[in-house]
Nucleic acid binder design. Structure first.
Lengths: 235, 235
DNA sequence: GTTTTCATGTAACCCGTTACATGATTCA
DNA sequence: TGAATCATGTAACGGGTTACATGAAAAC
């Protein structure tokens, strides 16, 4: 019922669709796995999870060790699950209704879907999205950006000369960034057009994860980073 | 006293430093003139102006017609200005204290200054900023981005193969964007290094506006948009 | 056995938007 | 004289963060 922000809700449902997780891990995935996603804080995530549960889209299950998603064949560890009264880690799992709701969100598009963060979120789950919807989103995004470019060009033309060199440079760089994204979208749209018919025409198929690996129509930039010896220099 | 968000406060002071304005116009400038600035709503702007006044950084003056910053020679229309008790447009002007406060903000740098929006705001006022500070900000921003790149690379290396093609593509594009900004910063820093000594070594000089026109060390990309026949295809 | 890291939660606050209310000025 | 735009405001809400409180598991 309560219409929690969309973006977080959407991402959570999407991630949980792939596999059940507890909040802590969910948050990490939110920050890294997905492309652009800003770091949501626990103060946002946990309450959100609660309302999703309240809506019947998730259920909380007792989970024990972090990496306890049975590695195939391995029966869910549920160690006697005798931890009756004890508070343990909570693993969130998508319910049938949750899944259904997510499908709905996936297929629905509106002006919101073209906005920066919203778009990134949508794109991140394109793997589960139907071809038609992908097209709508990509094209919507593109025209959104083109509008923006118009405004920038106009404002630039209007104010040129009266402006500081730095301000000008900032605007120039901003415009170029947008132009670059438009080109990116063009490529995507193009390859979406040719490589059509991929995955998910009808929203009933299972097996969400291993859709990767297939050759689909994506632009194919060099998908491998050059050697790059430097690794976990990060904390 | 109240530490209103920084960014809006900063931008307002900066814009008003160039010339007095009323709120309505201020907002437009915020949206367009500055590079990246998101559109603040009146609901944000006016209250903010109020507190800036309360802090003694601005004063409200009665202003009459919008374009009434007497264009030299042209008498301000001030139609009889008999509007004694009547509520008229309010023009905000920077006080001496306000100016001082802004200088202070300009010269202060902290981890905040490297964040996306904050950085854009700082950059937009580089024209009034001392060389040293500009360097700090540019370099701070750069290392901020490099950190981010590290994390992205790490996460990419960690999760590759387990990921959807689309998710991967999103990450790739995200990383490229960041890399691109780093290159931009490199250019800026470079030209900042060579073309040093420009404007504002001592914070007392007046004449804020017509600093433009001078040739400073900026990279000089083609400042004019290429022909580009396709124009207002939007709308 | 103590420190780290994992893990869950909550209350107070902050920044900003939306939607609304109001009025003055411009222009057809 | 009526519509559009300029111009100023405010109350209600929304979505998110920070800082805090708590505790279990792992690492040393």
């Amino acid at each position: 019922m309560s219409r929690r922000s969309g973006i977080l809700e959407f991402a959570v449902l999407g991630l949980l669709r792939e596999s059940p997780m507890h909040g802590y891990e969910l948050r990490k995935r939110l920050n890294t796995s997905l492309g652009i996603f800003r770091a949501f804080s626990y103060g946002t995530l946990y309450p959100c999870l609660k309302t999703l549960v309240a809506n019947g889209w998730l259920i909380e299950e007792p989970g024990n060790s972090p990496a306890d998603l049975p590695p195939a064949g391995g029966r869910a560890v549920t160690p006697a699950s005798s931890l009756a009264g004890r508070r343990a880690k909570i693993v969130y799992r998508l319910t049938a209704e949750g899944k259904e709701h997510f499908e709905e969100l996936l297929s629905h598009t509106g002006p919101d879907s073209w906005e920066d963060e919203h778009f990134a979120a949508r794109f991140a789950f394109f793997g589960q999205t139907e071809h038609e919807v992908r097209m709508r989103v990509l094209e919507g995004r593109r025209s959104r950006l083109e509008e923006r470019l118009e405004k920038m060009r106009a404002s630039l033309a209007r104010t040129r000369e009266r402006l500081d060199d730095y301000t000008l440079e900032l605007q120039r760089h901003g415009m170029e960034s947008v132009e670059r994204e438009v080109r990116w979208l063009n490529e995507l749209i193009e390859s979406e057009r040719s490589g059509r018919d991929q995955r998910r025409s009808s929203p009933g198929s299972e097996a969400p994860q291993n859709t990767a690996g297939e050759t689909d129509g994506l632009p194919r930039h060099r998908g491998d980073t050059p050697p790059d010896p430097s690794d976990d220099t990060s904390k």
